[in-house]
Design a protein around this nucleic acid. Structure first.
Length: 628
RNA sequence: GGGCUGGUAGCUCAGCUUGGAUAGAGUGCUGGACUUCUAAUCCAGUGGUCGAGGGAUCGAAGCCCUCCCGGCCCGCCA
């Protein structure tokens, strides 16, 4: 509970005081104070000012007097500020001990929002016809961080990746291989997914543009893909699985793992659509159109002024949105599961087992990857379609918010980076496009970052062996990439700039990681094991108390991040922790003080900082290096 | 035209959900700090009509309304 214990204590006492004055129904705030205004502040007097028609300062005076009589163990002083705020000062001797000892526990920062319930997080879900680009990375990193935060909040999280292996985009590269003579082997040194995206896909779509009559070939291929037994479908399956494997390698390299892979082709062949179609009709969520422009179609009526949405075409086939309905229902466990499960051919790093669905018999036991709640991470361009799914799911399931579309703005290319790729945009940012070859592959960004961080690390540690340098550079590169994707608000566009993304200073992961390395170094040099058996009352310097306070704030931020599905809250917290530690580092020394008791107390604090920052960074999938 | 969304310092962004105390960071620019636990660091200075206008409020960057500017989405494509 940490710092929250203090807040809770104050809140309880204030409630008792208000009860004593027979005032209820006032939802005042009790929050960490701005610096210079004590440790915790409450706005209660402002709110009472309305009821009592007195000015806030007078009320604050009365309340602070009353508060002095209430039982409090963690508050040392109450002050009524001339502004009307009620400011509380902590009893640091007690709070120091409380926070620092709790921070040594593994579950420090954990909150019980989920109550052990199951939740599905679906992210990534990239067409298996190309390599992952920097835009996909935002989705992947966001989804991964959300999953980590939810785990910390006592949810049982199932992480899914939906592989759309039967769409038009796949058909396009199959056309390339089958009709335009692209070799099955990529040129030397090129990953297969890069080859499919950069060469086969881009050049094949170029050909359509020049000769629209080729569209006929594409249509035929798409038709053949739908029949799972066709030779084309089997060929496509081989290709998409090769691409998928490469895509997964990119994800794994970034420390992203999944629990299960779902394949669109299997969902189509499973017959789930038929079942959900019947259910939709039964519940009259869709209607058959007898007249107008959608004659012969099944549609969902548009709400308000929105147009009706066609779900089943007049030729009886399901549209794009429609295909998402059975999957959404499956994720919520609303349908009988038609799938068997088998392990993916490759083991994920760290021995995380990856399952995949299959329609073939399997010797493995049946698995369950559904959840009471479902979070689908897709960018905001799909908001309209996702709203349809969300509405439908809320009608299927009693819980209103069982299905959540976690929307985020897309990643665009900065004008400079677009220029580098050969597109002049007149100083404007540009939307990425796989079809036009206008994107930056994730692997390339990682490679550039790694080359730069290797160079930096070598400069600092000429004595270090190459494999150690590579390890540090890897952690810093992944950290940098992840942090850049997470620190920004979800509904703000990230304008990706190749040059600026290589910055390792300021509000970046390396800044935070470096701070961690500094702390590690102190402990390493002390030649001691930090212990909790120290005198906490020796920690009285402002920079020490600030650090303890910030450490104690961990769970508050985890709760905030989990409730609002907002990983940036954790990113800001990590940065905050690092800034506070750096201030501590500049203000007070830890070693060679000639006072062993004080040294031990400070070592204990440094260690608490380390443990907390490591846990917080872990929620973002960023590794805290002991040396860099 | 309708829907969603952004507009805060030269640039990139926090803060807005839950209205209150001097609107915060980073970056840039200027200057300073390594014989010291790692300078991927720290300190100081510089820089703001919180898009505009109106409203309710003792009090608005935040709430309500109108407007302006940018982005995205609106197919029996996927």
């Amino acid at each position: 509970m940490s710092f929250k214990s203090l807040i809770d204590e104050i809140e309880n006492n204030l409630h008792k005081i208000l009860d004593g004055l027979s005032i209820s129904d006032v939802s005042f705030s009790v929050e960490p104070a701005k610096s210079g205004f004590g440790d915790v502040s409450s706005n209660v007097s402002f709110l009472l000012a309305k009821h009592l028609k007195k000015n806030p300062k007078e009320i604050a005076d009365i309340l602070s007097e009353k508060y002095k009589q209430s039982q409090s163990t963690l508050v040392s002083k109450v002050e009524s500020h001339p502004s009307g705020y009620l400011n509380f000062f902590a009893n640091w001797e007690k709070l120091n001990q409380l926070i620092l000892s709790e921070s040594n526990l593994d579950e420090f920062g954990s909150v019980d929002l989920g109550k052990s319930s199951t939740i599905v997080v679906e992210h990534t879900s990239v067409n298996p016809n190309k390599a992952l680009h920097i835009g996909h990375i935002r989705n992947i990193i966001l989804g991964d961080a959300i999953a980590r935060i939810l785990k910390k909040s006592n949810y049982k999280v199932n992480i899914l990746n939906y592989v759309d292996d039967s769409g038009l985009q796949v058909a396009d590269i199959i056309v390339g291989f089958r009709h335009f003579g692209f070799a099955l082997q990529p040129p030397q040194g090129k990953k297969f997914d890069h080859y499919c995206g950069d060469d086969v896909y881009v050049k094949t779509t170029e050909k359509y543009e020049k000769d629209p009559s080729l569209e006929e070939i594409r249509k035929n291929i798409l038709k053949e893909l739908e029949d799972g037994n066709s030779e084309t479908a089997q060929f496509a399956d081989k290709i998409t699985r090769r691409v998928l494997e490469n895509q997964l390698e990119t994800c794994w390299n970034l420390g992203v793992y999944y629990d299960c892979l779902n394949f669109e082709s299997q969902i189509i062949r499973s017959g789930l659509w038929g079942k959900i179609f019947e259910k939709l009709k039964e519940l009259t969520l869709i209607e058959f159109e007898n007249e107008g422009k959608n004659t012969g179609c099944w549609v969902i009526r548009g709400e308000n002024n929105e147009e009706d949405k066609v779900i089943v075409r007049s030729n009886g086939t399901a549209t794009y949105v429609a295909k998402d309905i059975p999957y959404a229902a499956w994720k919520l466990g609303l349908l009988e599961d038609p799938f068997n499960y088998q392990k993916y051919e490759k083991m994920q790093p760290g021995n995380h087992v990856l399952w995949q669905t299959t329609l073939m018999p399997s010797s493995e036991p049946k698995q369950n990857f559904t959840g009471k709640k479902v979070i689908t991470v897709i960018d905001s361009r799909q908001a309209r379609l996702q709203k349809i799914i969300t509405t439908l799911m809320s009608k299927f399931k009693s819980a209103e918010d069982a299905y959540v579309h976690l929307s985020y703005e897309s990643v665009t290319l900065s004008a400079d980076t677009a220029q580098t790729l050969g597109l002049n945009t007149d100083g404007k940012q540009a939307q990425m496009s796989g079809r036009k070859g206008l994107y930056v592959n994730a692997d390339s960004v990682y490679d550039l970052l790694k080359a730069k961080t290797i160079e930096e690390t070598q400069k600092r540690h000429p004595e270090m062996i190459d494999s150690d340098i590579a390890k540090i550079a890897h952690n810093v590169s992944v950290g940098t990439l992840r942090y850049e994707m997470i620190k920004q608000d979800l509904d703000k566009i990230i304008s990706f700039d190749l040059i600026k993304s290589l910055s390792l200073e300021g509000d970046t992961a390396p800044y935070i990681q470096y701070t961690f390395a500094r702390a590690s170094r102190i402990i390493e040099k002390s030649m001691r094991t930090p212990s909790l058996d120290v005198d906490f009352s020796l920690l009285t310097d402002k920079s020490e108390l600030d650090l303890i306070k910030t450490i104690g704030m961990f769970d508050i931020h985890v709760m905030d991040a989990a409730k609002n599905l907002s990983p940036k809250v954790i990113a800001r917290y990590c940065h905050d922790l690092a800034v506070t530690f750096n201030s501590f580092y500049e203000h007070v020394k830890v070693l060679d003080l000639g006072d062993e008791k004080l040294e031990n107390s400070r070592l204990c604090l440094v260690n608490s900082f380390k443990l907390t920052l490591e846990k917080a960074l872990n929620l973002l999938g960023i590794i805290a290096p002991d040396k860099m």
